[in-house]
């Protein structure tokens, strides 16, 4: 199973390690043409403003949008969640708009406000790492909340689009990445 990781900048190596531990083959994606060779996509943590500079070139963001709209499973964490959201606040900025949600950037504050806490993921406790993290605001009807922490939604899913405000790639818990791999398997079975 080839899982692409958008490798423009950010903690894509940590995602590659998390996927490798689960038996998947990670592929670092730096160009739109590589999207045809992957079964799923991770948009990692990093700086969303930096990612946008690259996505605005050479039809990159349109290519991702097309792939995800045709069913490619995608997981975004932190900056990745910001890019997937339809509406971005603090400040407003462009995004891929593939998840019917509002995301507020740097919603917890600056780095001194970053934290690790135990949240809930699909009914089970999970250690969650929040770094200059965003928050989900209003969520569309088709969006399910799969994870919460400090009484807020922190992981959501709308069909093949999954997004977390925290960094599952910075811990050893593989459940979030497993969810992406399960979605890929499901799509293959049906496709």
């Amino acid at each position: 199973m080839n899982v692409g990781i958008l490798a423009l900048q950010g903690d894509y190596e940590a995602h590659a390690q998390a996927l490798t531990r689960l038996g998947a083959t990670p592929a670092l994606v730096k160009h739109a043409r590589q999207l045809d060779e992957i079964d799923g996509l991770v948009i990692p943590g990093g700086e969303s403003t930096t990612f946008l500079k690259f996505l605005e070139r050479d039809g990159f963001s349109a290519a991702i949008t097309r792939a995800v709209q045709s069913g490619l499973p995608v997981l975004g964490t932190c900056a990745g969640a910001i890019l997937l959201a339809k509406r971005v606040e603090n400040p407003a900025q462009a995004s891929l708009g593939l998840l019917d949600a509002t995301v507020r950037r740097n919603a917890y504050g600056r780095q001194v406000d970053s934290f690790i806490d135990t949240g809930d993921f699909q009914g089970q406790p999970m250690e969650m790492v929040f770094i200059r993290a965003p928050q989900f605001g209003s969520l569309g009807d088709g969006v399910e909340v799969l994870g919460t922490c400090r009484e807020r939604p922190v992981f959501v899913r709308q069909k093949n689009v999954m997004a977390g405000a925290f960094h599952p790639e910075l811990g050893r818990d593989g459940r979030v990445h497993q969810l992406l791999l399960d979605a890929i398997r499901e799509r293959r079975k049906n496709g």
């Binding site: 903690d11 940590a14 943590g45 700086e47 970053s114 790492v129 770094i131 910075l170």
Partner: peptide
């Protein structure tokens, strides 16, 4: 420790930049 993981976590986000 936990505090150090958060610090290194931010550094991780800056990689490739």
């Amino acid at each position: 420790n936990e505090s150090f993981r958060l610090k290194v976590g931010l550094a991780e986000m800056l990689k490739g930049g």
